[in-house]
Simulated assay, not measured.
Amino acid sequence: MFFAIKWHYDQGKKAQDKEKGKRAVLGAAGKVAAVFVLSLLALGLVTFALIRTLSLDLSLP
């Protein structure tokens, strides 16, 4: 009886550890995605500023 209870308890702990691992991976993926989007936005703003500084034509044909 003791071993059955212990086994179920250990299985519950494993499930909690998996959930914490998934949460950590999702958090890291979210941070990477946020950094990517911010760097893309910064690149677009720098490009736009450079184009305006060089007085290039931005009008559509």
Rank of each mutant, 00 (worst) to 15 (best):
M1D: 14
M1Q: 14
M1C: 09
M1Y: 09
F2G: 13
F2I: 14
F2A: 15
F2H: 13
F3G: 09
F3K: 15
F3P: 08
F3T: 15
A4Q: 12
A4H: 13
I5S: 14
K6S: 13
K6M: 14
W7T: 14
W7H: 15
W7N: 10
H8G: 05
H8Q: 15
H8C: 11
Y9S: 03
D10A: 15
D10N: 13
D10R: 10
Q11G: 08
Q11W: 08
G12C: 02
K14I: 06
K14H: 06
Q16W: 05
Q16V: 08
D17H: 06
D17R: 10
D17Y: 05
K18E: 06
K18Y: 04
E19F: 01
E19R: 08
K20D: 08
K20T: 03
K20E: 12
K20H: 08
K22V: 06
R23I: 03
R23K: 11
R23G: 09
V25Q: 09
G27I: 00
G27M: 02
A28Y: 07
A28M: 10
A29E: 12
G30F: 05
G30K: 10
G30Y: 05
G30R: 08
V32I: 14
A33P: 02
A33Y: 07
A33S: 09
A33K: 07
A34R: 05
V35M: 09
V35Y: 04
V35E: 05
F36T: 11
V37Y: 03
L38R: 07
L38N: 07
S39R: 08
S39F: 09
S39P: 01
S39D: 08
L40K: 03
L41E: 03
A42Y: 02
A42T: 09
A42E: 02
L43F: 10
G44I: 10
L45W: 11
V46C: 05
V46E: 06
V46A: 13
T47W: 12
T47N: 08
F48K: 12
A49C: 07
A49N: 02
A49Y: 06
L50W: 15
L50H: 12
I51Q: 11
R52K: 13
R52V: 11
T53Q: 09
T53V: 08
L54D: 01
L54I: 01
L54C: 00
L54E: 03
L56Q: 00
D57F: 00
D57P: 04
D57W: 00
L58G: 04
L58M: 11
S59R: 14
S59D: 06
S59I: 02
L60M: 01
L60E: 04
P61E: 03
P61D: 01
P61K: 04
